[in-house]
């Protein structure tokens, strides 16, 4: 019997929220030194106004992560409208030392066939789209979180044939919508151009509850996320056996080193899904877990 080598990789998605530069630097230093993470995605995906705060730190953070044995990928903006954003996208795509994860089709235009990855904010829902993008240089696809398990299974079959890799988010709040309007600024009676970076006040998103007191959504500037935290620990075995080979954690202010270890141990079958689940629950996650999308149900639901 051939020895089966476990090729599963744990990845850390880009920080979606507006954390102060020093907080990000400290966060990545700890990830570099301590976390059971294989690949780290860096870059401002949500708001171009936030970029200048961290631009000068990328080189150092990248070096630190690489010295810690991590692979670094740069993630692009997801919404490109203004001249400044178009220039950011063009500049990003000139990067030659690292792979790019594309989150807007403008990136595909600039990359023009060079190898790249497709981010979860791109709409890759089916095998024809995957095949086309793979023929133009895409090597890994992080699938949209709303895609149900059976569709992921079909895409995994095609991915094997195409020689590309599949990534799925398995932890953290789920991105649900993008807008041109900044809802953080709006909540504070401001507009996007005069936001004064109020989004910094909510490092895991601004809570939005219903008028009858239900916990509902989380706002992050132009992005709307789930209140619930995606948790696919119980589904990891199924994902692995379909051929998903990259498992993404979305960074939050909770102990991500501990989160990573729980997922790594579960992938390595060093811990049972039940045990992993209770360890995860003990980390003070400020919301219920959900996995509804995976099971073809409403995304906020949890199937036990």
């Amino acid at each position: 019997m051939a020895v089966k080598i476990d090729m599963t990789k744990l990845t850390l998605g880009p920080i979606l929220f507006h954390w102060p530069a020093q907080q990000k630097i400290d966060f990545y230093a700890r990830i570099a030194d301590e976390a059971a993470i294989d690949t780290v995605y860096l870059g401002e995906v949500i708001c171009s106004k936030r970029s200048p705060f961290f631009d000068k730190h990328y080189a150092d953070v990248t070096e630190r992560l690489e010295r810690g044995g991590k692979t670094v990928v740069f993630s692009t903006l997801a919404e490109v409208m203004l001249k400044r954003e178009r220039n950011m996208m063009a500049g990003f795509c000139e990067e030659e030392d690292h792979l790019i994860e594309v989150n807007d089709t403008a990136g595909l235009f600039h990359l023009n066939g060079r190898p790249h990855m497709i981010g979860p904010l791109m709409n890759v829902y089916n095998e024809d789209t995957m095949r086309y993008l793979a023929s133009k240089g895409a090597t890994r696809f992080c699938l949209p979180p709303e895609l149900p398990g059976p569709s992921v299974a079909v895409l995994c079959e095609h991915a094997k044939e195409l020689g590309v890799s599949i990534e799925v988010q398995v932890f953290g709040r789920t991105s649900l919508a993008l807008s041109a309007r900044c809802y953080h600024a709006r909540a504070h009676g401001r507009i996007k151009d005069n936001c004064q970076f109020v989004c910094e006040e909510d490092p895991d998103g601004m809570p939005l509850d219903t008028l009858t007191g239900q916990r509902f959504l989380a706002i992050n500037g132009i992005q709307t996320l789930s209140h619930t935290y995606l948790n696919l620990l119980p589904e990891l075995d199924a994902l692995k056996s379909m051929g998903v080979d990259h498992f993404r954690l979305v960074p939050h202010t909770q102990d991500m080193v501990a989160v990573a270890q729980i997922y790594r141990d579960t992938l390595d079958v060093k811990t049972s899904a039940d045990e992993a689940e209770s360890k995860l629950a003990s980390l003070d996650i400020p919301a219920p877990f959900a996995n509804g999308f995976w099971h073809g149900l409403a995304g906020h639901q949890r199937v036990q």
Binding site: A78, E79, L121, N123, Y125, P144, P145, E146, T174, L176, A177, L178, S179, A180, R181, L217, T224, S226, G292, F293, G296, L297, A298, G299, H300, Q301
Partner: peptide
């Protein structure tokens, strides 16, 4: 509509039916 069309799964989050799909 307020969200960028084609980039909104709020309905699916609540109802299990997707705008995109």
């Amino acid at each position: 509509g307020l969200m960028v069309e084609g980039r909104c799964s709020l309905t699916n989050y609540i109802t299990g039916l997707s705008t995109n799909l």
